[in-house]
Design a protein around this nucleic acid. Structure first.
Lengths: 102, 102
DNA sequence: ACATAATATGTCAGAAATGACATATTTTCA
DNA sequence: TGAAAATATGTCATTTCTGACATATTATGT
């Protein structure tokens, strides 16, 4: 894990602590974060490809524009559950979901 | 969706309401539930294959035996986040995770 | 059958995620 | 440039999830 990657994650709001703590980030924890960010990216790509605004997507899934923004920003305080529900609401199949995780 | 499947889900604690409501379960909602159950099953299979007890897995991931039991039971009040964290703690790769979702 | 281990079920206080709202910032386009 | 649309950021009350615990039920081995 390089410094650039760390900086990018920290910018998104992930509290990675000191450099020492960061180096101690377990493979599991890292995989979890990467997985979330992969879903975030997928969500944004899918929404844009469908030409929907964040507000429109929010209405479809009975959420709010601000939460959609946070989802796409990879905000740590957004659950994988919500990301997955959003992707399903956009018509992404389980198969496609699985592919975007790997 | 047949009656047998409905019964099985309801037994796990999913509140699907009346038959009418059940028929109105959207494809998204169903996909979400199926996805969760797939992860539940994967978790149990993986734990058993590693010859760990629920209590041992709980210790590894700093949870509790009862929560592990609920995860494996497909309890609706367990997040996908926790299921995924558990699978990662058991050494499942993102790739394998993606495969088990699809 | 019996003890012991493993798993399941119910509950709850505290922690985390949620939708909603206000408002700031950025993008788009005439 | 400047107005309008879209997106981002911050906050908060309510809802949902969590680990922990007690206890019930079920499996395992002798």
């Amino acid at each position: 894990m390089n410094k650039a990657k760390q900086t990018k994650l920290e910018k998104k709001g992930w509290k990675l602590g000191t450099a020492d703590e960061f180096l101690n980030l377990s493979a599991d924890e890292l995989a979890y974060i990467e997985l979330k960010l992969a879903l975030s990216d997928k969500l944004k790509a899918k929404r844009v490809s469908k030409k929907l605004t964040q507000a429109e997507l929010a209405r479809i899934m009975k959420s709010s524009q601000s939460r959609v923004a946070k989802m796409e920003a990879g905000d740590p305080a957004v659950s994988i559950d919500l990301l997955i529900k959003s992707l399903l609401a956009l018509g992404v199949s389980k198969k496609e979901l699985g592919r975007s995780i790997s």
